[in-house]
Amino acid sequence: MSEAQGIVRPKTAASTALRWLLFAILGLFALYYLMPLIVMVMTALKPLDEIRTGSLISPPRNPTLEPTVRAWNSACVGVRCSGLKPYMLNSILMVVPAVLISTMLGAINGYALTKWRFRGADLIFGLMLFGAFIPFQVVLLPMARTLGALGLAGSLWGLVLVHTVYGLAFTTLFFRNFFVGVSDGIVQAAKVDGAGFFGIFFRVVAPMALPAFVVTVIWQFTQIWNDFLFGIAFSAGDNNPATVALNNLVASSTGVKEYNVDMAAAIIAAVPTLLVYVFAGKYFIRGLAAGALKG
């Protein structure tokens, strides 16, 4: 922010000192926040004997990628010693369909709730919103029985179903708030132009909702990728997602605790969500701001 902008303030020694104090405090907070990440990255790059002898925050003297490679393809998760690789694949196979289906359904819900008003639309939206506040522990047992009845117990498709269902509350909320701000006239014009429910959705309304799609995809991706509770409750053994595998990997080290491999595995499991933020983060902020203004 240049000094030419903003509200005019008197410039005194006291105000300058206060400003520096403010920056110092903010810098301290930032450091505090970054500390775990710094420790993780440094530890993951150290050989095991350096961890034993050095301190937690000393930088690695002989950086090595060996722990990272081991975490990826040879560390033991339970009895299976093939690293996180197969479980990362599981997570991707779970996340991609779950995100796409829940986002698409949320978009159609939001569109129907705002642009094709029907009796009870507000009630239905209220109930769906309520779904966003249900603690997931409550649904574990009924959902386990449902998955069992559907023959999806322990499978990846079961997880996809669970995440889709419980993501709907949020995706519907995001899209509903976006579409509330879209002029009804556009939908009416499209009706006069002869387009139907899905014609208007796919050809007129959905292209306008790009920011809402970005926000929802990031949100759902992060939620589903990071989920541990559903993963551990509803998947078994080789079908575990990365988060559950990470936990098992850390828990199943025998003899010497390999902190560097554990840290590297944790970083690997976190990388996809970080990448999503890096590539789409600015849309995320923008979309959230737009949603806040319109919602």
Binding site: V192, G194, V204, M208
Partner: peptide
């Protein structure tokens, strides 16, 4: 019938050409 709306109700992601022809294409 054809209708002109107060807010114009143009399709914001379409070009002028696509806006005008949307009905015919439909």
């Amino acid at each position: 019938i054809a209708m002109v709306f107060q807010s114009y109700a143009l399709y914001p992601t379409k070009t002028v050409r696509e806006n005008i022809l949307f009905g015919m294409i439909t």
